[in-house]
Structures are given as C-alpha cells and as structure tokens.
Design a protein around this nucleic acid. Structure first.
Lengths: 191, 191
DNA sequence: GTCTATATTTTGATAGAC
DNA sequence: GTCTATCAAAATATAGAC
C-alpha cells in the first residue's frame, strides 16, 4: 500500500466531501464532482460504483474513528474530568484532520442506505459511553449533579459543530482551541 | 386576518418544513410535499410560486424573529449574565415553537437564492451583537477573560442544535431546560 | 482511464379541463 | 382548488470506442 500518493478513488472522496459540505449530498451531482476534478462524470464510475458509495466511505470511516477513540478513552486510567478532556481532544483532532467529512457525518448521514443502521448503532453507542462517563463523574462528585443527557447534549453539540468554526480562523492554534474548550466546557459541568 | 385557521399556504410551509428536517431541502420533492398533504404536486402551485418560495418563507421568518429578539435583549436593562440568560430563553422559545423550521435555518440556508445575502447579513449581525455582550461582560468582570469568539461558538452551537434534542424528550419541561442550560452554559463562561 | 453517446428516471413547473 | 397530462431540464448510470 502506497500511502504517499493519493489514489483516484481517494481523490474522488476528498473532492466530493468538499462539495457535500458546501451544498449537501443531495444537491451535489456527479457532474459537479467530475467537473471539480477536470474530468467527465462517466469517468468517475471507473473508480467508484455509485454516488452512494462515496457517501458511505466518507461517513463510515469517520464514525469508526470516533468509536475507536472512545474505546481508548474508556479504557484509560484518567478520572472523569480527564476523560472529558480526552473526548474534546479527540473531536478537535478528527475534525481538524477532516473538516469536509465532518460536515457529511453531521448533515448527510440520513442519506445512507444499507449502512444507515450500522451508523446509527455506532452513534448511539458513542453517546451511551459519553453519558456513562458523566454519570460516573456525578457519582464520584467530580461533576455537577444535573441531567447527564443535557450536559452531554451541550458539550457534544459544541464538539460536533467544530467543523464549521475551525476553518474560519486560519490563524487558529489547535492546542489553544483544545485548552479554551476544555476550560469552558468542563467548567460548565464540573463541581 | 384570521389567525385561528391555517391557510393552505401555511399548511404547505408547515408540511414542507417537516420533510426538510428529515431529508434536507434538496432531497424533498414537490411530489413528496403534495403526497404528505394528500393532493397532487401541481395543486401546490395554486398557493406558492415555487419550491424556492417555500424555503424563503421558512428561513426568513425565523431569522427575523431572532433578530427581533436580539434587539429587545440589547435594549434591556439586564447585566451581561442576565442578557445571556435571555438569549438562551429566546432560543429555547423559538426552537420549541418551530422545531422543523429550525432545521432548515441551520441546514438549508445555503439553498436560498435572492434572499441568501439578506439572511447572511442578519446572521452576522446577530453574532456581532452576541460577541458585543460577551465583551462587555469581560470588561465589567462578569465573564471569563477567554476568547469571546470561542465562548460564543460554544454557547451558540448548543443553542442552534436545540431543535435536534427538544423533540426527543416528550416529557421535556421547557422551564427546566432553560434552567439547566443557563446553569451549564453561563457557568462555563462566568467568573 | 477517459471519452462520447445514450438509456432511464426523476425533477420543477405549466396548461387547461372540471 | 384540484385534477390529468405533459413538458423541458437534469439526474444517475451504462456501453463501447479510443
């Protein structure tokens, strides 16, 4: 496997994700993607089997990366606040590495077909793991005794929207972003 | 003006918004909307001029409601933290009154045409007003001295995602939601 | 690997009968 | 105010030449 040069399929996925972020999956045509690459739409089908195929790759690979990250955090030795900071770091890292893909993960998952149920399972499991961390923090006295669902909602929506904000500040220091977010988000729920 | 009974156009807008939330503007067809109302697609055009027209009504009316709400908050006598709580209340109120419209406001605004620039102007002004409140709070010592853009981002993304979460909890007490959110979000940025 | 040509379906929208 | 019939454009995808 050659990791230094991008395959044609990877290029299609990358270009498509960029367009999906701008207009959404349904509004982007195969001609749009091809045109952006300087080729004709029919040529795309030598590398991918369908438009659906492109969306599947974008979303599932990212969803699995989040699942993997959460599994590592779960098995870490940190306390609850430490795990929250690890979650924040996970989102900042994956979001900044794949801004365009994060847009599809958030907005285009409903256009998945066969992989839709699998995606939803991954997402529910992720949220369950997140709530579990908060509940243990409440029990141990690290975390504010408020509804864990609302606390998770508040933190997770901020993290899920990072892809909108990261590209706006070209001078953005990722470490500083992680620090400020940790301060704000953790302070909001900590005791 | 009869406010008790819904006009046909209002019904179209309401049904369309519900479908837009589920699949996004581009993926919803005029036939989808008509079918949901039990009529044929051609009949819709006796009440609206185009699919674009429907989206314009949904988004602009909501965007203007937020602008109005922010203007009232700006001119209120509350201190910074009080104004933040008023903003939270504004979002919870408008979101719970129009769950479906909020989805379009968040996800379908890029499909506006002539009204797109107007919408973006309203949104930028809203964010500027928000940041202004935070900056005054920093100056007066009410608010944490962190980047106001990141603080606003964190609070605003939570509030903009309310439409996703409000319908999930049918037993949701709006007053309780406002209370918990105020506690979490304000605590995250307060001194 | 890309092209042209084309098949097939679906789309937003209009015309005109009732 | 709704219908049937229909149009014109645009969509995904395939076949076959180069």
């Amino acid at each position: 496997m050659n990791k230094t040069s991008e395959t044609r399929k990877e290029e299609i996925v990358r270009v498509a994700a960029k367009l999906f972020k701008k207009k959404g999956y349904s509004a982007v045509t195969m001609r749009d993607i091809a045109s952006e690459m300087g080729i004709k739409a029919a040529s795309l089908y030598n590398h991918i089997t369908s438009k659906q195929d492109i969306l599947d790759v974008i979303i599932i690979s990212l969803a699995e990366a989040f699942t993997e990250g959460m599994q590592q955090i779960r098995s870490s030795e940190e306390n609850c606040v430490g795990k929250l900071k690890q979650i924040i770091e996970l989102h900042v890292r994956l979001s900044s590495q794949n801004i365009y893909g994060m847009a599809s993960l958030n907005n285009d998952w409903m256009h998945l077909k066969e992989k839709r149920d699998y995606f939803k399972r991954l997402r529910v499991n992720y949220e369950d793991d997140f709530i579990d961390i908060l509940k243990k923090g409440i029990a141990s006295g690290e975390i504010l005794d408020a509804k864990p669902e609302i606390m998770m909602f508040s933190i997770l929506t901020t993290l899920r929207s990072l892809y909108i904000w990261i590209p706006k500040k070209e001078d953005l220091d990722l470490e500083e972003l992680i620090g400020t977010l940790s301060k704000i988000l953790v302070k909001g729920v900590a005791c």
